[in-house]
């Protein structure tokens, strides 16, 4: 492999998109209103679409002859590098929207920065995905505000989701030697810059929603290194079912 750091970087982006898209797909047919069923499915579809482009690029970087499906479907759990946040269960609608909001608020500035990357393919994927992500963030921000400033029940549910998910947000800005290599070469942005923008967005939206930013400082991580929560195995059981039960077949 010519560039293991870049491969790892793109794989993380791919896995985040895939696992979150997979989670959102569970909502299909069960949304709280028909319009929202369509919106959640649409976000899921966008994420799966992004995952396809990203895995294609990762496969090319790897140069081992694997394709996007082999990367997406045929790795072991500790080889998936998504953050813990995206594998957390859907919970109620508040939990799903807050998980998505925290992710979108991270993804948008990240894609905006990656559009400037000298890695052309990465910049191109970012440019295409940034439009979708902007819409996702708008949609989830609006729901966070509606829930926070809606009824007592919706406020409580939104706050409970924030308090629960907060521990997973720090991992979004994880960096290791791979990141630092790419950053030193000027290929990808520093996570500190993304985190500043994330904090601005989250603070503004939660303030408008009359929701509190948690004071707890728990920082869960492990996903970026392939150490996942108990939920991940179940996600992969569904995701990989067909590929594992019927190996080497085309669908």
């Amino acid at each position: 492999m010519q560039d293991p750091a870049l491969f790892e970087y793109v794989l993380r982006l791919s896995d985040d998109s895939l696992i979150l898209g997979q989670r959102l797909g569970e909502w299909c047919g069960h949304g709280p209103i028909l319009e929202e069923d369509i919106a959640l499915t649409n976000i899921s579809l966008d994420l799966i679409g992004q995952a396809i482009s990203l895995y294609d690029f990762a496969a090319e970087l790897e140069g081992a002859g694997r394709n996007h499906d082999q990367l997406a479907y045929l790795r072991f759990e500790n080889e998936y590098k998504n953050v813990l946040l995206v594998e957390q269960p859907n919970g109620d609608f508040a939990m799903t929207i807050l998980r998505q909001f925290f992710f979108d608020a991270f993804r948008l500035p990240l894609y905006e920065a990656l559009m400037q990357s000298p890695v052309e393919q990465l910049a191109a994927i970012a440019a295409k995905s940034v439009k979708e992500t902007r819409y996702h963030l708008k949609h989830t921000s609006e729901w966070v505000i509606r829930m926070g400033d809606g009824t007592d029940e919706s406020h409580q549910r939104a706050q409970a989701a924030i308090d629960h998910l907060w521990r997973y947000t720090n991992e979004l800005f994880y960096e290791d030697a791979h990141d630092r290599t790419l950053q030193a070469a000027g290929l990808v942005p520093k996570m500190a810059a993304i985190q500043t923008k994330w904090t601005d967005t989250v603070t503004a939206v939660l303030n408008e929603a009359t929701l509190a930013i948690p004071t707890n400082n728990w920082k869960f991580e492990g996903g970026r290194e392939g150490r996942h929560s108990e939920h991940m195995g179940y996600i992969l059981s569904d995701l990989q079912y067909m590929q594992r039960a019927y190996p080497n077949m085309e669908w």
Binding site: C28, D69, Q243
Partner: peptide
């Protein structure tokens, strides 16, 4: 949407997953 939606998480490859998501979304529309 329900019988097909059940298979979104288990679709055998990414393309089929995307196609199925799009189809079920059309039905909601």
């Amino acid at each position: 949407m329900l019988p097909e939606g059940n298979w979104i998480t288990r679709a055998p490859n990414l393309r089929r997953k995307a196609v199925l998501l799009a189809k079920v979304q059309d039905e909601a529309g």
